[in-house]
Simulated assay, not measured.
Amino acid sequence: MGERPGGPDDVVAQLFDGAYRRLVVQLHGVCGDLTEAEEVVQEAFVRAVARGRRFAELENPEAWLRTVAVNQARSRHRRRRRGEVLHLVRERQADRPGDRSGASDAHVTLVAALRQLPAAQREAIALHHLADLPVTEVARTLGVPVGTVKARLSRGRTALAALIGDEAPVDAARATPTVRATRREDA
């Protein structure tokens, strides 16, 4: 009882092949944990399969997947905050040396710094800089006004600069440290 070629399952499979890795990298910045990022993206794909033809007919299915994954990450975060024991286990795991993602040292440093930001700022920065989404798409994904996203980005970049150090600010789009030739204010 499989789908015909070109059916909803094919759309999901093609999108999985083309977007899974990109979505995991984007959500890694939001979650601060690679395993959790993989899990929320997988959950988004499971929900896409469940939607069937309705998913295949979406105008921007990758944006839908990203929104579902961000919402899933938020839900998990809220549940984790309620359970102190789970939170302590997560902290111990995050403090262990070694990152199995294969990410560069700069990316690991960036994600560690992002983890220290408030969730709203972390989400905005990860989606705008790591996922390279325009501010309007970040606002739509998070369900907040554009001005709110701009404020979160500004505050988050300021906090990141303090966490990482002003001498080597992070170019989040490439997740590598860069040296600023002249000091300027990022808006």
Rank of each mutant, 00 (worst) to 15 (best):
P145Y: 05
E137K: 12
E123I: 04
Q121Y: 07
R140N: 02
P118R: 14
A119M: 12
A131W: 06
T141G: 01
H129L: 09
E137M: 09
P134M: 02
A131H: 04
V135K: 03
P134F: 01
V138E: 08
I125K: 00
L130W: 00
I125D: 01
R122E: 09
L133A: 10
V144K: 13
T141E: 08
V138A: 10
V146M: 04
L127Y: 06
P145E: 13
T136L: 11
A119Y: 13
G147Q: 13
R122K: 11
H128Q: 10
V146W: 07
Q121N: 11
D132G: 04
V146P: 00
P118A: 13
L130I: 15
V146K: 14
Q121M: 15
A131I: 06
P118N: 09
I125G: 02
T136K: 09
A124P: 07
Q121R: 15
V144P: 06
T148I: 01
A131M: 10
L127Q: 08
L130K: 01
G147H: 09
A119E: 14
A119T: 11
A120E: 15
H129V: 01
E137L: 10
L133W: 08
T141M: 02
L117D: 05
E123S: 09
G147T: 13
L133M: 13
G143E: 12
L133C: 03
L130Y: 01
T141R: 00
L133H: 11
A124I: 05
H128P: 02
T141P: 01
D132S: 11
L127R: 10
V135A: 12
L127S: 09
V146E: 12
V146F: 05
G143Q: 09
A119L: 15
V144Q: 11
D132I: 08
A124G: 07
T136Q: 09
V135Y: 01
I125H: 03
L127K: 06
L130V: 15
T136C: 04
L127V: 06
L142T: 04
D132A: 14
H128N: 14
A139V: 08
G147C: 00
A139G: 06
T148D: 06
H128S: 13
V144G: 11
D132F: 02
L127F: 06
A126K: 03
L142G: 03
L133Q: 10
L133E: 13
A120T: 14
R140K: 13
A131S: 14
L127W: 07
V138L: 13
R140F: 00
G147L: 09
H128V: 01
P118W: 08
A131K: 04
V138Y: 09
G143W: 12
L127D: 10
L133N: 05
I125S: 00
G147S: 14
Q121L: 08
D132Y: 00
A119P: 05
L142W: 02
L117P: 05
